[in-house]
Structure formats: structure tokens, C-alpha cells
Amino acid sequence: MVIVEAKDLTYTYPNAEKPALDDVSFEIQKGEFVILTGPSGCGKTSLCRCLNGLIPHFYQGELKGKIVVNGLNVVDHPIHELAMCVGLVFQNPENQLFALSVEKDVAFGLENLGIPRKEMRERVNWAMETAGIMDLAERAPHELSGGQQQRVAIASIMAMNPEILVLDEPTSFLDPVGAKKIFGVISKLNESLDVTVILIEHRLDLVARYANHVVVMDAGKIILDGEPREVLNSEKTRMLGVGIPKVTRLFQLLEEQKALHSKKVPIMAEEMGELVRGALKA
């Protein structure tokens, strides 16, 4: 089932000369884990802003073409309606947190929906538990470290049970172990609850393993759109300056020298290890 569909989507910010999105068309199926990547300023963030209606309703500017999210044509539905099905987690968690305690921040969205107290309690606890911030419940968000704040932001979005989770470099401020934990959480939500995940990320080393769909953008256009291993192994991706996993690059270098072959291009260290082991045995 198609959950996001864009057709000939072109968007220009007010007073901008060039469009931020230039004739973009793609489809995302329900339950997919999509990585959206590409050089800085390529239009990734703008594309995500279209998904919950920030574009065009908040940023205004000129939108042409069609974008439909969960059956709703974005242009015809206000942000608060789209926000019910699309949860957005930003790069910088500070922009998203404002309540006096972590617990209140996580509960805020639910309070606005008028969810019964008992269900609210359960959902808030579940979200805090999943994001690993139970012990921070009483703390003030602005006193927390960047990494902890991002986990609070993710918990407050997760409490809303969105159909689609859009995350814009959500682990930038986390240490690698914390980042792995968050990607694990997102992946679990994707697998067990069938939440569609759209993740903007540069560090493909960290996230390639979770994805089943990768979209590469450059200068407002979609350059590649497909299966992760195929996209990551493409010459086009590398020439764009997208940081493909080191494992994949190492495989390419060895394949060029005819030292290693595989139909399945490795994207994780353990896959590469097994390839080397197999080749040495043969």
C-alpha cells in the first residue's frame, strides 16, 4: 500500500530564486524504512517539511505538483490534521522541547488530543521506556544533555502513535552507543508496529543496515531511488559525495582488483568479514 506519493513536486521558498524541490516524484510503501540522503542543501529537509504540511502551510512559497500522505492531499489539509499521522523529529531537539519536565513534554501532544488519563499514562510510560528515558521523567528538558534531549523529543513523538515517523538526522547529538540505541528503537517500531520510517541521515555507516529503501537527492532532484545495496554500490552515489559505508567502499576497491566478488554487496562489517572468510577458504 502506498502511504506517501509525490508527483512532479516542485517547491520554491518565498523570495528564493531556485526551487528547493525540482520536479520530484516518488512512492513510499506502508511499513518501509526509508533513508533519505544527499549533500547538504539538496532538499531533504524541504521534502520532509512537505510530509506534514509545514510546506506549504507554514513556509508558504510556491508549491506545484501533488503530494499525498496517508491518503491526504497535503495542500488541502492543515498541519494539525497531518500531524496526527506524521510525527517529525528535528535535527536539534532544543527546538522541540519546552515543558518543565520530561514527562510533561512527552504527554503534551496527548493532552492536546484529550486522551483519557489512564491511556495517556500508559502511552507516556511506554514511550519513555522505549526511548530509555524513564529515569529522566522528573528532570527539566533544558538541563539535559543534547543526546538525552533528543531521546525526549523522540519519546514525545512516539507517544502520539504516528503512522509515519520522519526523523531529520535524529542522532547527530548522541554518542555512538546512544545513537545505536535510538536506531534500534526506530527499527523496532518499524518492524513490530509497522510504522513507516523516513530517516534523513548522512552517516550511512550507522543506518544502512536498517533500511529497505534508499533515496538519494541532489540539487532538489531525486538522483537514485531503490534497494539499499544497489543504491549504495552505485557509482552515481559515490560521485555525488555521499558517504557510503566504509565496508561497501572497501568491497568496491577489492572488486576492482578482482580480489573479491559477491552478488550481495556488503554494507555491514560482519558481512564483509564473512565474504573475506569465504574467499580465503575457496
Binding site: P176, G178, E270
Partner: peptide, 17 residues
């Protein structure tokens, strides 16, 4: 709480070789 570089991780996984 720092992770290994990906290149190092490859070799750690095939220590026996």
C-alpha cells in the same frame, strides 16, 4: 561508550584469520 571504526570492526569479526 565509543564504537569501533567500521574498518576495525571487520577485522575484529575475523580474528581467527
Amino acid at each position: 561508550s565509543v564504537v569501533l571504526p567500521q574498518v576495525t570492526e571487520i577485522f575484529m569479526g575475523i580474528k581467527d584469520l
